[in-house]
Design a binder for these strands. Structure first.
Length: 718
DNA sequence: TACTATTTAATTTTT
DNA sequence: TTAAATAGTA
C-alpha cells in the first residue's frame, strides 16, 4: 500500500505518533500543531497499513462538531466509508450503548434524555413537592450538586454526609431526583455517562465483549475529560489496552465543568509504558504571537511543558490599545476591521473575542453603526427554543405517557383550561400513589377533578392518544407536522404579536423540515421518532446563520477554542473582567484564566490586537479597571502601544446633576491613576468627603483596594 | 389567565 | 443596564 497520502504531509513528530507501535500513546499537541490531523491520520494508518478492522476503532471527542469533522476527515483519507467505526462524543457513544443494552442498564426501552433545562424543571418541581424553601435550596445549586457527583461517579449511597445537615439534605434531594427520573424513564446528560460506565462495570460479559472489540481507542481533547469519562476509558482499555490520546494541558479551560487536567499526568501512571510525543511545531501563527503565548503560559505551574515554534516570520508586533471607555474600544476595533477590509481582506477572517457574552453588545452596536455584517456565536440553539421544546414534549408524551416533565410542560400549552388547581390535585394523587401524572389524570377524571376541568383534561388525554394512534404508521415528518398543528401550538404562537410570534411559527415549521431531512443512525435500531427525540436533545442544533455570508466573527474565548483567524481582537483586557474577578485570588482558577488567554492569543495567525477600556459601564455603573495582568506578562519587545496615552480626548468627569456627588479633591477624579509610596500604582475607585480630609478608595495593582485619607496618603497623580 | 410591576442578580458551555 | 423570574392585579 502506498502510505504517501497518510504520511506525506506530516512532520517528524506527527509521523512518529501516527506510526507508533501499539503502546499507550500520549500526544501533547500545542495549539495549531495539527492535533486532529494526527488523530485522523493515525486511524487511517491503523486501518490502511496495520490492517485493523473498522469496527475495532472507537474515536471519541467532546462536541458534535468535532466528531462530525473527524468522521469527515477519516472518510476522505480512507476513501471508503468509516462504517463500523464508533466515532462520536462521549455522550453520543454512551447513549448508543444504553440503547443497545437498555435491559442490562435497567432502563425502559424508550427512555428519554433530559437536557439541563429539563433537568432544572424536574428539580424545581421536586423542591416544591418536598416543601423546601427554594432560596435555601437553590435549584441550580442542587443541579450542580447532583451533576458534580454524577460526573465523579458517585451515587447517593456513596455520599457520606456524616452529620452535616446541608449535605444530608442535598444527598436526599439527589436520591429522590434519581428515583423520579428512573420512574419516568428520564436520563440526564451526566446520567448517560454514569450509566454507561456502570453498565460495563457491572456486566462482565459485556465489558469483555467491548474490550475485545474496541482494541483501538482514540481520544481527542483529552485534557477535557472528567472523572467518569476517564474511568469509562480505563474500564474499556483494561489492563492490556493501548489508548491513543491527544491533548494540550495548556488549553484546558473547562475545569469549572469538571474537566480534570490531572488526567494528562495520570495517564502516564495508569498506563505504565506510555509513549509521549510532543507536537511543538505550529503552523498557524507568526513568531511574535507564539513568543507572546509561550511567555504568558510559562507563568503557570505544573505544566507538562512544551514550547511552540514556527518556521514562519516574526510578523507584526502585537498591538495594545487603551480606550477611554468601552465604546472607544469598540470604535478602535471597528476602525481596524475597516482597514483590513479595505486592504482586500475578508470579514470572516477577523474575530472579536471577549471573556463574557455581555461584552458582545457594544461591539454589535459599533458594527451596526458602521454597517459591517457580523455574526455572534453562542446563544439559544434551535432545539432549545421554547416553542420547539413544547413540540418535542408532545412527541415525548406520545412515546412515553409517564414522562411527567413533558406532561407538565404542555398540559396547558396552549391554554386549555387546566389550571394550577387541577394540577395540584393530580400531583397530590401521583405523590400518594407513586404513579405518573398521566395515570393520575386517568384516575381522577370525574374523581376529584370535576366539571369543566375534568372535561378539558379528558380532551387533552384524548388528543395525545389520538396523535399517537392515528399517526403511528406515518412518516416521521408527517407525524411532526400533525402534532405541531393539532396540538394547537402553531395557532397559539401565531397569536403572539409582532415578529416574535411569526418567528416561533417559522421555527415550528422548521422543526417539520428538520424531521423531513432527519436520517436516523441505523446502528441504533430505534424507532424513527425515538431517534429524532434523542437527536434533538443530544445535538441541540448547530447554530444557524448563513455561513456563506462574509461576517466578522464575535464570540467568547471559550467558543473560540479550535478555531483560527488571520486577525484577532482580544477585547476587555482588564483585571476583573479578564481575568474574571471571581477567578483572581484563587491560583488554580487564575491559571485557568491564563490558559484561556493563551487560547485567545494562539487563535491569531497574522495580526493580534489586545484592547481594554479605562472606564467601563458594568451593570449600569461606571467602573475603572486596570489593564489585565496578562498584558504585563507578555515580553515588552513583542508588543506595541497603538496610541501613547495622551489624555487629550478623555471625557471630563461630570457629576450627575441633582445628586450630591462628592467633590473630588484637587487633581483627583474617579479613574485617576495614582502612585503611593508603599502600595505602588493604583486607580481611584471612590471618594468620600472633600478637601484634605477626603477619603479615597484606591485599587492598587499589588496591594488591592484601600481607603486612604488624602491628607496623609501623599498620592502622586500619574 | 394574561399582562404589568417589582425584584434580583450578573463567567465561561457541551452534552 | 438589562434580562429574567416572580408577584401582584385586571
Amino acid at each position: 500500500m502506498d502510505v504517501t497520502p497518510i504520511l506525506g504531509s506530516l512532520n517528524d513528530a506527527q509521523r512518529e505518533a501516527v506510526t507508533a507501535p501499539p503502546v499507550p500513546l500520549l500526544v501533547l499537541a500545542g495549539a495549531g500543531s495539527g492535533k486532529t490531523r494526527v488523530l485522523t491520520h493515525r486511524i487511517a494508518w491503523l486501518v490502511g497499513v496495520e490492517g485493523v478492522a473498522h469496527h475495532s476503532v472507537l474515536a471519541v471527542t467532546f462536541t458534535n462538531k468535532a466528531a462530525a469533522e473527524m468522521r469527515g476527515r477519516i472518510e476522505t483519507l480512507l476513501d471508503n466509508p468509516a462504517a463500523g467505526m464508533w466515532v462520536g462524543t462521549f455522550h453520543g457513544l454512551a447513549h448508543r450503548l444504553l440503547r443497545r443494552h437498555w435491559k442490562e442498564a435497567r432502563l425502559p426501552q424508550s427512555f428519554q434524555i433530559l437536557d439541563s433545562d429539563d433537568q432544572l424543571r424536574v428539580i424545581k418541581r421536586l423542591i416544591r413537592d418536598l416543601d423546601l424553601d427554594d432560596s435555601r435550596w437553590v435549584p441550580k445549586d442542587v443541579r450542580g450538586f447532583i451533576n458534580r457527583n454524577k460526573d465523579e461517579g458517585r451515587r447517593p449511597a456513596d455520599l457520606d454526609a456524616d452529620d452535616d445537615p446541608t449535605q444530608r439534605q442535598l444527598a436526599h434531594l439527589y436520591d429522590v431526583y434519581q428515583r423520579r427520573c428512573d420512574e419516568a424513564g428520564l436520563v440526564d446528560f451526566a446520567e448517560l455517562l454514569l450509566r454507561a460506565y456502570e453498565l460495563w462495570r457491572d456486566n462482565e460479559d459485556l465489558l469483555t465483549h467491548y474490550r475485545q472489540r474496541f482494541r483501538n481507542v482514540l481520544v481527542d481533547e483529552f485534557q477535557d475529560t472528567n472523572v467518569i469519562q476517564y474511568q469509562w476509558l480505563r474500564l474499556l482499555a483494561g489492563p492490556t489496552g493501548v489508548p491513543f490520546v491527544v491533548g494540550d494541558d495548556d488549553q484546558s479551560i473547562y475545569g469549572w465543568r469538571g474537566a480534570k487536567i490531572e488526567h494528562l499526568h495520570r495517564f502516564q501512571k495508569d498506563f505504565p509504558d506510555t509513549k509521549l510525543v510532543r507536537l511543538e511545531q505550529n503552523y498557524r501563527s507568526t513568531g511574535t504571537i507564539l513568543g507572546a503565548a509561550n511567555a504568558l503560559i510559562a507563568n503557570n505551574t505544573s505544566r507538562l511543558g512544551k514550547n511552540l515554534w514556527t518556521e514562519d516570520d516574526e510578523g507584526e508586533p502585537i498591538r495594545i490599545y487603551s480606550g477611554f471607555n468601552e465604546r472607544d474600544e469598540a470604535q478602535f476595533v471597528v476602525g481596524k476591521i475597516k482597514d483590513w477590509s479595505e486592504q482586500g481582506g475578508a470579514r470572516q477572517e477577523m474575530a472579536v473575542l471577549y471573556r463574557s457574552n455581555a461584552q458582545s453588545r457594544v461591539f454589535e452596536e459599533a458594527l451596526i453603526n458602521a454597517a459591517i455584517p457580523y455574526r455572534v456565536y453562542g446563544g439559544l440553539r434551535f432545539f432549545e427554543r421554547a416553542e420547539i421544546k413544547d413540540a418535542l414534549a408532545y412527541l415525548r408524551l406520545m412515546v412515553n405517557r409517564d414522562d411527567d416533565n413533558s406532561f407538565e410542560r404542555i398540559v396547558n400549552r396552549p391554554t386549555r383550561g387546566i389550571g394550577a388547581r387541577t394540577l395540584e390535585v393530580l400531583r397530590a394523587y401521583s405523590q400518594a400513589n407513586a404513579t405518573s401524572l398521566w395515570k393520575s389524570a386517568g384516575a381522577q377524571i370525574e374523581g376529584e377533578v370535576r366539571g369543566r376541568a375534568s372535561k378539558c383534561l379528558f380532551e387533552f388525554m384524548r388528543l395525545i392518544e389520538e396523535l399517537d394512534q392515528q399517526t403511528r404508521d406515518l412518516e416521521l415528518h408527517e407525524r411532526v407536522d400533525i402534532v405541531v398543528n393539532r396540538s394547537g401550538l402553531i395557532g397559539h404562537y401565531g397569536k403572539e404579536p409582532g415578529e416574535k410570534g411569526q418567528a416561533r411559527v417559522e421555527n415550528l415549521e422548521e422543526l417539520v423540515s428538520a424531521a423531513t431531512g432527519f436520517m436516523p443512525d441505523e446502528q441504533l435500531e430505534m424507532a424513527p421518532l425515538d431517534a429524532f427525540l434523542a437527536h434533538a436533545t443530544l445535538e441541540s442544533g448547530v447554530d444557524q446563520g448563513n455561513p456563506w455570508d462574509d461576517c466578522v466573527q464575535l464570540m467568547t474565548l471559550h467558543s473560540a477554542k479550535g478555531l483560527e483567524f488571520p486577525v484577532v481582537f482580544l477585547s476587555g483586557m482588564e483585571d476583573g473582567l479578564f481575568p474574571h474577578r471571581l477567578s483572581v485570588g484563587d491560583s488554580k482558577a487564575l491559571e485557568e484564566e491564563r490558559r484561556l488567554c493563551y487560547v485567545g492569543l494562539t487563535r491569531a495567525m497574522k495580526q493580534l490586537y489586545l484592547t481594554y477600556a479605562e472606564q467601563r459601564r458594568l451593570h449600569g455603573m461606571d467602573t475603572y479597571g486596570m489593564p489585565s495582568r496578562f498584558i504585563s506578562e507578555l515580553p515588552q519587545e513583542l508588543v506595541e502601544e497603538v496610541r501613547p496615552r495622551v489624555q487629550v480626548s478623555r471625557p471630563v468627569y461630570r457629576p450627575k446633576h441633582g445628586l450630591a456627588q462628592p467633590e473630588a479633591p484637587a487633581g483627583m477624579r474617579l479613574g485617576q491613576r495614582v502612585r503611593h509610596g508603599k502600595f505602588g500604582d493604583g486607580v481611584v475607585l471612590n471618594c468620600e468627603g472633600d478637601g484634605a480630609h477626603a477619603r479615597l478608595q484606591v485599587n492598587f495593582e499589588m496591594a488591592g483596594t484601600k481607603w486612604l485619607v488624602m491628607a496623609y496618603a501623599n498620592l502622586e497623580v500619574l
